[in-house]
């Protein structure tokens, strides 16, 4: 397991600090942990030298390596600016979006950047991991808006801006799985996961959702909000700066009065329709 050792070395040199007077580097070495289950005899780790330019991101560096040095290096990527959540990987020991980290900021004093697949999940090949447990947890949280009655406004539901701000940025989540990777509880066994609880928080807070009570009861079991150990790793790694743990704590706090929240939600429904005439057109 040489890769793990060298990884720690990387950290030590960061922690040890570097002389302030070090001139800016012109090249960096990307140390990439590799895996190919078809060919496990191949290198566990490869090193690639790339030039550092002011705007080069880790993703640009990886694309450059793939195109010019090693076409067998594989990773997921799509939007290039932190909107799609594809390129989450382990950069210097933390789950990061490769497109949103500048190479010059990630290089340590020895000129190295340590890159590996997202920690805590099964590796498929190189930097590509199997996120199916992550997506399963999301799907099982019933992330869609639940409406029981067919009454819908002719135009939009009237949602006040203060009700919207109660989401606390939960709608900005790009499902990149950084929180899932950092969370020690998801690694230890079955757990709904920070991302699914965040979405549940959004739906519980959304006045248009008619099942806040059921949702709260759903996350009150052994694998839901109370399984969270409050490590706050999710919030510390979220690339969108969402305080995920705050959402989990809010869910816990709401549980004691789940019934009252359900009642309140029912009472809120008529005013959601505003003054506009209603229609009874059935929603699909």
């Amino acid at each position: 397991m040489t890769n793990v050792v060298s990884h720690r070395n990387g950290f030590c040199s960061i922690l040890g600090g570097s002389p302030v007077s070090t001139p800016p580097r012109s090249t960096a070495t990307l140390v990439v942990r590799r895996f190919d289950r078809e060919r496990p005899h191949l290198l566990e780790q490869t090193e690639h030298s790339v030039s550092i330019t002011p705007n080069k991101t880790i993703l640009s560096a990886l694309l450059e390596i793939q195109a010019e040095q090693d076409s067998t290096l594989v990773f997921r990527a799509s939007c290039r600016h932190g909107a799609c959540g594809s390129c989450t990987m382990d950069i210097n020991g933390r789950p990061r979006l490769a497109c949103s980290r500048l190479l010059r900021d990630e290089v340590n004093a020895k000129g190295n950047v340590f890159i590996g697949p997202l920690a805590g999940v099964a590796v498929v090949r190189d930097l590509i991991v199997d996120l199916s447990p992550f997506w399963k947890a999301y799907r099982e949280s019933k992330p869609w808006l639940i409406r029981y009655e067919n009454r819908a406004p002719r135009r939009e539901f009237r949602v006040r801006p203060d009700e919207l701000s109660a989401f606390e940025g939960a709608d900005a989540c790009v499902l990149c799985a950084a929180c899932w990777s950092a969370c020690p509880v998801t690694r230890a066994g079955r757990f709904d996961g920070p991302h699914a609880l965040l979405k549940t928080h959004l739906r519980v807070t959304d006045p248009r959702d008619e099942s806040p009570g059921e949702r709260l009861r759903g996350v009150a079991d052994d694998f839901g909000a109370f399984r969270c150990h409050g490590v706050l790793a999710c919030a510390s790694v979220c690339p969108k700066g969402i305080d995920v743990s705050e959402a989990v704590f809010a869910l816990r706090a709401s549980m004691t009065h789940a019934k009252a929240i359900g009642e309140e939600r029912r009472e809120r429904q008529p005013s959601l329709l505003g003054n506009a005439p209603e229609n009874t057109e059935k929603e699909p």
Partner: peptide, 23 residues
């Protein structure tokens, strides 16, 4: 367009709002 926008809203899209709750 209007019908499609309201269809999104009824499925739960988190549009920004005016003080009176409209999109």
């Amino acid at each position: 367009a209007a019908d499609t926008l309201f269809a999104y809203e009824r499925m739960g899209t988190t549009f920004d709002r005016l003080p009176d709750g409209r999109i």
